[in-house]
Design a protein around this nucleic acid. Structure first.
Lengths: 235, 235
DNA sequence: TAGTGGTCTAGACCACGCC
DNA sequence: GCGTGGTCTAGACCACTAG
């Protein structure tokens, strides 16, 4: 398949931003400049800029131009913003299962796309702790065909999202979440070291990425007794 | 400001979907049909469909058409929107206590600003139902000096936020939230009609508004058994 | 093969920010 | 006034799906 023009421009600009060619707040070339640089029309340039906006790389200001945005740290809820930031430094992560091939689990709450279902699945799970106290169990499933040799690559700074961005150029563009209060089942009670039947916050997440065939499906089980899940949202 | 063409089409289709004119899985009219129906070009029609896709109302399939997506059966609480805009259908609200003067309650989780503490407080609480089933208890506290004669004014379409916007020109600009899974206490168990000790999702919210001396402090108690709390976030 | 959505061109006019 | 991004037109060709 031929590389799309808007995709070329999009990737070119994204790379320049990621490489630090522009500082936060800098203006990109104007749409008309980009048109002549790439010998394409404004419609195509704007499609590229639309995508970059959706991905959070730039902001556009009517009458002024497109500026480079500060890279976001969290999306909606529990992008584990609560861990390294809200809770402090004393957080740790234990792999329960490293990345490995698996089936698409019925535990996944959101509807998995047909395309993804027909492709191999990668799964990994982690236990998040504050100090010595386990506070969250995290299960993740995703399309394996998009992550060649994933199991062999170390997580960038322990962050899965950073790894996706830097090694695979996949960006998170949105998420859907559902939250429930449940009673702890045996497995989660054991891992979280709480009595069977304790109230547990169960969060189902579907992260949407810049690749429409690659979503991340997560099921999280949180002990909120000492560390409530936090979220902030600004317009 | 003139209403944009793509916005007209977008809102028209959204309304038809919300009204149930299309079933889940139904195909919308093709892009070319919409072009002639509205006497606009495909670029404009596609812009409308792009927005609906981003909002999660439709899915588009190359070579086939645009189908209506399943609407999430959730409360959509964690964004800045209110309950009334959640799923829209068949929700009702019962006032437990209408707006009245009160003290700033120790039940409020977030820190109240000094300025607000020194001023009178208005409180009201409601029970939110889907059909006949109570799903959420809502307590709200706020600075009374900003809401002259608030008790006497009817809520615009039953929406508190709309009332704030239309009568007081106060807009929500952001929020902070904390979530906990708890066991139901006596009062909330009674109101939500669940057994004592059932798992309940407790959400503490501080809404920030365009008036920095006016924040809304809410404490919410949700029965998530049938209607999980949902949230989606798109860039 | 006919119809659909996906990409792209080459223009136009408007609203906004700034000098 | 001028450059910027936002909206819109009237076409074109391509890729995908299905009968």
């Amino acid at each position: 398949m031929k590389e799309k023009r808007y995709k070329q421009v999009q990737d070119f600009l994204k790379l320049q931003i990621q490489k630090g060619y522009y500082d936060v707040g800098d203006y990109l070339p104007s749409e008309n400049e980009l048109c002549s640089t790439f010998s394409i029309t404004r419609t195509t340039v704007r499609k590229a800029l639309d995508e970059l906006t959706r991905e959070g790389f730039i902001e556009r200001h009517h009458g002024k131009g497109s500026i480079v945005r500060e890279r976001r740290k969290s999306l909606g809820l529990l992008n584990v913003k609560g861990f390294s930031e809200a809770v402090g430094e004393d957080v740790s992560t234990i792999f329960l299962q490293g990345p490995h091939s698996d089936f698409w689990s019925p535990e996944i709450h959101f509807k998995i796309s047909e395309k993804e279902l027909s492709q191999p699945c990668i799964h990994f799970s982690r236990l998040r702790c504050v100090g010595e106290v386990p506070v969250m169990i995290e299960h993740n499933w995703m399309n394996g065909t998009c992550l060649k040799e994933f199991s062999d690559i170390d997580f960038v700074n322990g962050s899965f999202f950073k790894t996706l961005s830097q090694h695979y150029h996949i960006e998170i563009v949105g998420s859907e979440q559902e939250l429930r209060a449940e009673n702890a089942h045996k497995d989660s009670a054991d891992l979280l070291k709480v009595p069977l039947g304790s109230p547990i916050l169960h969060i189902s997440v579907k992260f949407h990425t810049s690749n429409s065939n690659f979503n991340i499906y997560s099921e999280l089980y949180c002990n909120t007794n000492n560390y409530p899940v936090g979220n902030s949202y600004y317009l």
